[in-house]
Design a protein around this nucleic acid. Structure first.
Lengths: 193, 193, 193, 193
DNA sequence: TATGAATGAGACTTCATTCAT
DNA sequence: TATGAATGAAGTCTCATTCAT
């Protein structure tokens, strides 16, 4: 299993840095290899092609969001609290790694449709967990029981994503974490029964 | 002024079609020229370079949104009604032109950071109008007077944008206009005093 | 029609020289372009890819053999004389253009199976004409009427080809044309009734 | 002496299979190693480089032809009979090992000029034996005493080689051995006094 | 002897842009 | 204005070979 070998994550991390610092189209395989401290050819012992690196970046990093969110869901609080914690977690992960934030919010979106479809498939796992929170809240009476879950999920994710992207495009000029309470309030207001 | 000559819009429209049909990275200048019925070189009599075509596409098409929204704002209804009409207008324009929807929601986002910054600058005009609606609603007591306008605007725009993008990625399988009332309800709920 | 434009043959001829002088695997597209006095990209206005250049080389040059052989067949002599003239023509064309001889006898044979299959298809036209001579000779009683035409054709072509290849591999050290009468005699002896 | 160690022939045989099954350019050292059941690096304990493997393949396999032909020459029959037996032997060896036939007739010819020169040097031993048969036949009056031995040899070898190559390119669709009598007749006719 | 992970040079092709007509 | 043939820079990936174990 390639993913367990040390160089796999070494290259994934190098890709994040290379893409963040050079931009998607200027992050040539040779730059990623140099950043990772390996030869160009070594990349291809761990990844099928350049596309595979990019998808792996998203996959590995998205894993952090998903794992944290799974823990949040199990935490046995109210649905509103879970939603709030999800937003905090999302902002926290990206606040702590600006390279990653730049890559996921700006650079990786420049990839072609094929890659973006694969990225979306990975994202789906995260969105399913979000749906869980929403449905749970509807069932336990916290959230509006007549709302359309898909639309609600798109509102929540769209809001989080837009806020994060703006923060990156504004070059992290303000504190992303500080935005969390305001958004929580707005979204919970929108959803509440 | 180049913009008033007939071939200017002819090329802009051709670009929308070429990009929608071939994808951003496969919409070479020669394809746009062919679609417009002009020679490759002619493009450069009207546009500085390829980037200039793409920005012009966004600029010309965004104008429709802005003009409509200006009319909506002047319509003298409640802020909630204005917000609702804005959403309807947004969905209506994109529903009526799937090529344009594909281009703005999917393809143009593959452009590099520089182009997207310019696109964002054009978008700003639209967002300022949205801010106007929100502030007006806060002043007249319809909306929560303590909310952060920027965050509220990002929620509204992020939600609209995410819903539209999902609709395009799902290949227009459902009716976008039908989503409007649900979103209006959620968003007005979120914002209301 | 690309083939009628002057640069088409210019590139084909440059390819023969570049391959003869550098060897098949060292005849990069950039070398062919340089030899032809055009930019690398210009090659791709006339040829689909590198493979297409190589096949075109064979096709265009093989045309000379075929045209000459067609004239020989029409010349109204005995079948033996036609066979003799075919051999002379074959040797004459390659004697007069050592670059071409090197390319067809040595270099082009290093190409992959796909290219070689296409080359063989082109060669087929030549071999069909050879079959015509043989069959005619069998019908008019000059050649053995019980022989297997395919085997006879393979003997004639195999002999010519082996002699030419040896001549090239021996770096043209002897006069190829001088070999013709000896081969004519042997082959006509083999075939005669 | 490396050649006597068991892994030497193991690798040579693996190379024949790997090249026959994958084609010359797709028979990477790693594939040959895998087919031989050894590590890539082990190859280099027995062979100087990849070229050395290919030449060794030809050398080892050519040995069969040469040994058989030496026995035929010693068999004390007429020169015509010896020539006939040579053809039969040639066809028999390749008929019995289609992998080998594919490799010698098609794949190995894709190698570069340098390798083919070395292969030709190995082939020379075989051709010298063929010359022996021809000269003997000329001296004892069976064959035409005025013919050019080199040309005659090229005719015989060129014919055999062309017939075998065609058989391989036609994917062994007909019986190679059945061709032998026809060729014997044609060639002996060509050579006879 | 044997392994196999790591190396790194090298080439085909695309496409935005130019400029002679 | 309009044309379109020509330009040429630039990047992904393969694979023979090495060498530490």
């Amino acid at each position: 299993m390639k993913r367990n070998k040390p160089k796999y994550m070494q290259i994934v991390d190098a890709a994040v840095i290379a893409i963040a610092e050079n931009g998607y189209h200027q992050a040539q395989v040779s730059k990623i290899a140099k950043q990772a401290g390996v030869a160009d050819g070594t990349i291809y012992l761990y990844f099928k092609n350049k596309e595979d690196i990019l998808i792996s970046v998203f996959q590995e990093k998205m894993g952090i969001f998903v794992e944290n969110l799974q823990a949040i869901i199990k935490s046995g609080e109210t649905s509103s609290e879970k939603l709030g914690k999800m937003i905090e977690n999302h902002f926290h992960v990206l606040s702590s790694d600006r390279h990653l934030a730049t890559v996921t919010q700006l650079e990786l979106r420049q990839s072609n449709k094929e890659i973006r479809l694969k990225i979306n498939a990975i994202l789906k796992e995260y969105l399913i967990l979000l749906d869980q929170i929403l449905i749970e809240g509807m069932l336990n009476g916290e959230f509006n029981q007549t709302m359309d879950v898909r639309v609600a999920r798109q509102m929540v994710f769209g809001t989080i994503d837009e806020i994060t992207t703006s923060w990156v495009m504004n070059e992290y000029r303000y504190d992303l974490m500080e935005q969390a309470p305001k958004i929580q309030q707005l979204l919970i207001n929108a959803l509440k029964a």
